[in-house]
Design a protein around this nucleic acid. Structure first.
Lengths: 240, 240
DNA sequence: GACTTAATTATGTACATACATGTTCTCTAA
DNA sequence: TTAGAGAACATGTATGTACATAATTAAGTC
């Protein structure tokens, strides 16, 4: 990696990982103790531990106190998804970003919504419908519910100029975020807004953000046909 | 967390994070140097660094040598997706897992496939079509291409008994894995296999695994209607 | 023999220190 | 004024040590 004089934890990690790849250590096998690996490679235990930590996070091995380190039997495919602000996502692809507010009103959330928010006593929320454009064509249609309790200031924001997406992400940081991806056929409303045929297959990104145990917002982002979510790789070569 | 006598790096992390949440440090702001935070909280710099590292991985802050640590302007929503082996996924929900091999033949990959594999000189691959069942009903239809060069042993495996999915994951560990999620309308073949109507909206999980720069396998997993991908949360409260 | 208790052991955490690595800033020379 | 060399600086990495924690194993007791 850098210079071989001192072993970096990434080198150690790669060493162990290649041991797993070439089946020196097969699934289920127990790896040597950190201290032994350290002695063998000639580095400190803490260096080995850092390497092991990374492999453990990546889902390649499992560690237990006293139990030692084992190669995982059923390695999961673990990946990281980054969902940027829509404007960024569009502009990064060199396309022109546009935004339109389609509707906004305060109303009682549907049962479907309150259920997801684990909200026992539903209160009025702000519902915002908006369209994100890429190169002047419909890109994402978002149907958003915002908790007025968690974000009362949203009522004073001019949502024709700034998207609720951006305002919230800049002004209402969250402690938790649940994502859900699924596909549905476009219903009439969505089809009209996205200018596609009814029944077209759409990828929906549903997101709920929380501050502690209080929900801030729930969005259903209906993406235009052809939309894809890509993942950056996690296991192993996370770093450059 | 544990006992307050010594400050754990998670406590430090939470402390800093709440500082960001309550806007003591707003987006774009510069945080104090690690050493200063350490002095203020009364812990070692390495403890602060570990905490910062976590926040940085979570996408909350950005760190640069000499530049210091800044709260990110455009916090990305970052989440971890775990894609388990299908059997596991089904059984974990308390349903009965089933598997059927639908077809298997060696053939020249389509141009569409070779393109994704960055394969200049396409060679014959093994194409395997299979159906995963949950409670005896179609769950996922997979259309898989396997590189015979990377995994020649696959030709000797009895794929009517063991799914290529499982065999590969246990016997051909990978160094990289690209995932792609998108929605398509069901075409005739898929519709028939999954026992749904043509044109139904399907969530497709496309996965390519690599060993170094050599592709091992490419799968298109057509999931039955209603299928969802959920994420475990990353930012902030990753640990219990 | 079954249960409880204690010793053992491998990983986990915290700390202090020394040095490496990039950035940024500053000072100097053309 | 500008370009370039170099100092200053904040984060990154590696190490050794001491102790904490959890899980297993062994010993001891009824």
């Amino acid at each position: 990696m850098t210079h071989g004089v001192r072993l970096s934890w990434k080198e150690v990690r790669d060493h162990i990982q290649s041991g797993i790849l070439d089946r020196t250590y097969a699934p289920g096998d127990k790896l040597p103790r950190d201290a032994d690996i350290a002695a063998k490679l000639g580095c400190a235990r803490s260096t080995v531990q850092r390497a092991m930590n990374d492999l453990s996070e990546a889902g390649l091995v499992e560690r237990k106190r006293k139990g030692g380190t084992h190669v995982r039997m059923d390695p999961v495919t673990r990946a990281v998804v980054d969902i940027p602000i829509t404007r960024q996502e569009v502009e990064q692809r060199g396309r022109i970003y546009g935004y339109e507010l389609l509707g906004k009103k305060i109303c009682r959330p549907l049962r479907e919504i309150t259920g997801k928010l684990e909200d026992s006593e539903p209160k009025d929320m702000l519902r915002v419908k908006a369209l994100h454009l890429a190169d002047h064509r419909p890109h994402i249609y978002e149907d958003r519910w915002i908790s007025i309790q968690s974000a009362p200031e949203i009522l004073t924001v001019d949502l024709t100029r700034e998207s609720a997406n951006e305002w919230l992400v800049r002004n209402k940081p969250y402690t938790r975020c649940d994502l859900r991806f699924y596909a549905i056929p476009a219903h009439a409303e969505v089809a009209k807004v996205l200018e596609i045929e009814m029944g077209s297959a759409l990828l929906v990104i549903e997101r709920i953000t929380w501050n502690g145990s209080k929900p801030i917002t729930l969005v259903k982002a209906y993406t235009a046909p052809g939309y894809e979510i890509l993942t950056s790789n996690y296991a192993g070569g996370l770093e450059k």
